[in-house]
Each structure stands twice: as structure tokens, then as C-alpha cells.
Design a protein around this nucleic acid. Structure first.
Lengths: 332, 332
DNA sequence: GGCACAATGCTCAGTTTGAGCATAAGTGAG
DNA sequence: CTCACTTATGCTCAAACTGAGCATTGTGCC
């Protein structure tokens, strides 16, 4: 058979092997210096409800994936989406658990940034701090305490590997993702960390039922989510943390005017690290990302801060504006 | 209706609204300092054959998307895949042309890097220089001549916009993507450039039939491809150009040992720009990306070069190794 | 007025970059 | 064998960028 014929047959085959395709959204806002994701309650039945991300099917009415997503999210959460970007397509055959049959089940995940945090339209929809689900990712108050326990369990997991080579590989991965064994913490490797924890059996979702976490887990390995939604969230956070370094997407999360410190707090919330204040403002100034307004803050303690606004023009000027995050070295 | 109920219904709905899902691969190799993609001939019938990317359906036998891709590509092109990464999921409803019905047609696109350029197993599979399809992306010999003609047509397109505001927006986009009107060329914006050309009507694929390009187009707007495969290719190139800056993926394209200049040629081939030789080697040395071997090149003219090999260890040491590309300023 | 507090201004040494000059080590021609 | 040519490799230098911290400026509060 020729390649051309194979390709033809492939196309036919695709039509006769349809798959169920869903859309998932990680909708992010940042208010009061906290990063939040919009969550819904899923699984009303016996299995117990759990947090999940807004998700829905791809229906034929939608001309494009992205528009399908917007329509769906707006109906389900009453939240209008601004910036939207495709994240990843998750598609393991047994993704949704008991799939048995021949139907693949894909989820096309999207990341959306919204400017204001409305009281989350419906009762079932709620804004949750995303570190609630991935506590080890928040280093703003220094190395999270929970990492101690996680570290111990991960090292034990590496220890009990089959052969020395596998063990060595596991240790390498620990160093690379969690900064153990002499490695450094890289705030972008959110997904790799989650998947490592998953493999190590520290993530309740791995065992099927997701609602049965001990209280301890909530502060150490975080609140579970339905299906693979925590993985999707981890993907989103990692992507966003990378993106703010070379594109001014943070502004999608800011109100029309804000102070430089509010901006810094938002960047810190997303990246999970602290930044050096003076250098941060120098960076923003150099890049020409913002322009001053007449306004200043008032009421709070301390010297009032100038209000600034995002300069849309930078999108045309600078080839790749963004924040290269330089963490403020904190006194260990 | 509650959100939970909606979500439930959504899941049911997904099952009753299946979609056809396909896989597409951009398989990249770099030999002799040229960036190449593996192409196949598609559309054997009346419409005339045209170049396309290896593609196939997602069949239920495949446990994961990526494994499905590997299996499919290896059968279709006899090319074993090494590094594979998901690119994007393309899913406009009318993507495949006359879709009319309610069935969505998605394509999950992957980028694969292969080390050696084998003679392309089958007759219908061929390695093609990717600038054959996107000639304006190759700036290694200076600004491509074809950009002159493209620029003229794009400016005319901006000119004939409906209202002044739209015209202004179009000009901004030209500056941002093609560096016209005072903007700078950013080699990563491959997809944006392609889509702009598409919108401006300079891409034959936009008109449906894809085989009927004039000879002129081949050197100016490039060789067309089947379906939206050129868009997929553009996505891949843009992604790869971005990625080599912070991850040492180039090495996936290199033979076991190579010279620093070969490495530079490969990076240049991918990025489409020229680099400053001395600074490039300083960068590679600083990053500790390679280690020397005993070998040296021989036969060629000029002083023999030391052969080096990739240091796998850097993956564990450096948080984000890669090449920040610093173009060699060429005498206009 | 004096204090606490946050915003903003400014300095300074250590690196990193961009560019280019200089030297080394092969090949082929005469 | 020597010269011309070519590519590899070493090294310099000024400019720009970074990381860290000190100093000063406005405000609300007692």
C-alpha cells in the first residue's frame, strides 16, 4: 500500500472512529495579591462532590474551539472571558477512568485571564486560591513548610526504587523538579512536580476516588480535584509563570489603574516567589510597560503611591516585553 | 438548573456529540545546516496531489495521544521518533473544508525532532527544507528578497481596509509581525506572519484548492500544502525557535559528536538568522552545554575543528539551558 | 513635631553582551 | 617549501544589565 493510500484510509478511519471531546478552562484572576482559579462543584451523586474546573462538551454549534469555550464558560459561570489561550490537549484513553470502550476522551484545556473578580455568578462556582490545590508552589513566605514532609516522602519513594539505576533517575528528577539533592527550585516546573508527586503516590487522585483525602493532605499535598483537573491547573500555572517573563500578560489581571506595588504583588502571586522591590520597578520603568496617571492611592498607611496604567503601545514597540523574574534573596 | 446539573448534562452531551480526531506531526531534522520537515504526498485523486505533513487518525488502540502518533508515524514514514512534544490542537469546524455536518474535526499536532536524516523510507515521504513553504522566514542570507513583494502587497492590503481604524490596526499588525512601519523582525512570530498573509489573501490555501499556485508564488509566498498543514508547520517553527532559547533541544537534531560551528549552523537554520561566531561559542562554553572529545574534523578546508558532544548532565545542573540568540549584525 | 510606614530615588560592584582584533592550524597552488 | 586562503579558537573592551542596599520623600497617627 502506498503512503497516499494509507493517508486516504486514515481520513476515512478518523470518521469512523470518533472521540468524545471536551473543553476545560482554567480561569485565573488575581485579587488582593492572591492568585485564584474559578472552580465548580462536580459529581453530585454518590461519589461525593469535589472541586473541579469549569468544563463542558464541544458541541457542533461552536464554530471554533475557543468560541465554544467562551460560550460554555459564560453560560456555566457567568464569567466573561478576556484573554484566552490554548493550554494543552489531554487525551489518555483511560483518562476519565472506566472507559473500557473504544472511545477516546480528549480534553482541550484553555487558560483564561480575567480582570475582575466578580462574586462568581453561581453558588456552585467559587474562586479559590490556586495554592489551595498545590500548596508547595507558594514560596512567597519562604520555603513552604509542607515541603519538608513532601521531601521526606519523595526521598523514600526514590529509595524504594527497583534497581540502582532507576533510583538514580528518580533522584535526578527530584533534584530537577523539587530542587532536592542540590538542585535549584525552578518555579516553572509546576507540572513536572505534580506528575512526580502523582507517580510517587502522594496524590489522592491517583487512587481513583478523589474525595477521601485526610486532613493532613490538605495542607501538605493540597486539596484534590475531580478527574485530572489538578494536572490541568498545574499546566496552567506553569505556562503562566513562563509567559509573564516574556509577554505582558499580567496586565490582563490588573484593574485599569494600579500601583507598581500592586503589580508586583500580582506577579509574585503568580510566580510564587518574592521580588526585589526597587529592581522590579526599575525593570517596569525600563521596559516602558506602564505610564503614570494623575491619581494616587490614599487612605492606607505609608506614603501614597502613584497610580499607573498599562501602556498598550508597548505591544507594538518592544519585541518581547515581560518580567524576567529576579527573586529577592530572602534571608534564609 | 444548577451548575452541577449542567456539568452532568455536559458530560452526556459530549458522548453524544463525538468528533473526528486526527494526529499531525511536524517531524524536523537538520542536516547540512538546513532545517527540514518530513512531508508526504496527499490527495491522490482528481484535485491534484500536494505536499502534506504525516497525518493519521486517532484510533482506539492507542493508549495515549503521543503513542498513537509515534505508532502512526513509524508506520507511515518508517521514521522512528525521539523527542516529541505536543504543539497545538487545531479545531475550527470548517477546518477540512466542506464539513457541513455537525461533526467537529480536530487535529492534535505534534512536533518531533529526529537526529538523523534517513532517506525517508517511502517514495511518497520526502524531507523538504521548511523554508520552501515559508520562504520569508529565512534571513540567514540577509532580508529575503521575496519580502519586498510581500511587503508591497501587505501594505496595499492595509491600505484597502474599510475604515481608518481598521487600517491602523492592520498597519500595527504589519509592524508587529513583519517589522514593517518601523517594527523589528521577531523570528518567533512565524505563525502570526503566516496568518496575516492568509488573511491578506496571499496564501493560496485560503481559496480552497491548494494546487494552483503560480510559479511566482513559490519563491515569494512559498509552496502551498494540503489542508492547513502550512499553518501547522508555521506553529512548529515558531515553537521551536522559541524553545531553543531556553531548552537545549537542538541537541536532539545533532549527531553524537559535532563541531561547535555545526551546532551554530543548526541553530541558525532553525532560527533563520545568523549568529556571531565567537559569542556563540562563548555562550555554549559558559553554559557548559558540551564537552570536548578527542576527535577533530579533517579533510575540509581550514583549521580542523574539535569535535564535541552534548553533556547530558546539564539537564540536571542548569535550571534553563539554551541559546539566547544574539544575531550577528550583518552589514546591511 | 515626631514616629512608623510605604514609595521612590540613586549608587555601586559584579556580570553579561555585542563587536571585533589577533593568532593558530589546516589545505591547495605555485 | 612557501604563500595564500580558510576556518577554528583565544582574548579584549566598552556598554548595558543585574543584584543588593542605602537614602530620601510623603502621609497618617499620637
Amino acid at each position: 500500500m502506498t503512503t497516499a493510500q494509507e493517508t486516504e484510509r486514515a481520513a476515512d478511519s478518523a470518521l469512523s472512529n470518533p472521540s468524545a471531546v471536551g473543553l476545560v478552562a482554567v480561569i485565573v484572576a488575581a485579587t488582593d495579591g492572591e492568585p485564584r482559579a474559578l472552580t465548580v462543584q462536580v459529581g453530585g451523586q454518590a461519589r461525593g462532590r469535589s472541586d473541579g474546573l469549569p468544563a463542558g462538551p464541544l458541541v457542533p454549534e461552536h464554530p471554533t474551539l475557543e468560541r465554544g469555550l467562551r460560550a460554555w464558560v459564560e453560560r456555566q459561570t457567568h464569567q466573561r472571558l478576556g484573554y484566552v489561550e490554548q493550554l494543552y490537549t489531554f487525551g489518555d484513553r483511560d483518562r476519565q477512568g472506566d472507559d473500557g470502550g473504544g472511545l477516546h476522551s480528549l480534553s482541550v484545556a484553555y487558560l483564561a485571564l480575567v480582570r475582575e473578580l466578580r462574586p462568581a455568578g453561581l453558588a456552585e462556582a467559587a474562586w479559590r486560591n490556586w495554592y489551595h490545590y498545590l500548596p508547595w508552589e507558594d514560596w512567597r513566605a519562604g520555603r513552604p513548610n509542607s515541603l519538608g514532609e513532601i521531601e521526606a516522602k519523595l526521598l523514600a519513594w526514590a529509595e524504594c526504587a527497583g534497581d540502582p539505576k532507576q533510583r538514580r533517575r528518580r533522584e535526578d528528577r527530584l533534584g530537577l523538579t523539587f530542587g532536592l539533592c542540590g538542585g535549584a527550585w525552578n518555579e516553572e516546573r509546576v507540572l513536572e512536580r505534580y506528575e512526580l508527586l502523582f507517580e510517587a503516590g502522594l496524590i489522592p487522585e491517583a487512587q481513583g476516588q478523589s474525595g477521601e483525602a485526610h486532613d493532613a493532605d490538605l495542607t501538605v499535598t493540597g486539596q484534590p480535584m475531580a478527574l485530572d483537573h489538578r494536572r490541568v491547573l498545574a499546566t496552567a500555572i506553569g505556562r503562566l509563570r513562563g509567559k509573564i517573563k516574556y509577554r505582558p500578560v499580567v496586565f490582563e489581571l490588573m484593574p485599569p489603574t494600579f500601583t507598581l506595588f500592586q503589580l508586583q504583588r500580582t506577579v509574585e502571586a503568580l510566580s510564587g516567589t518574592n521580588l526585589h522591590k526597587q529592581n522590579f520597578r526599575r525593570l517596569v520603568a525600563q521596559q516602558g510597560l506602564v505610564e503614570e496617571t494623575d491619581g494616587v492611592t490614599s487612605g492606607a498607611t505609608g506614603r501614597p503611591a502613584r497610580l499607573v496604567r498599562f501602556r498598550r503601545e508597548v505591544l507594538l514597540e518592544r519585541p518581547a516585553p515581560g518580567f524576567r523574574l529576579r527573586p529577592a534573596r530572602r534571608p534564609a
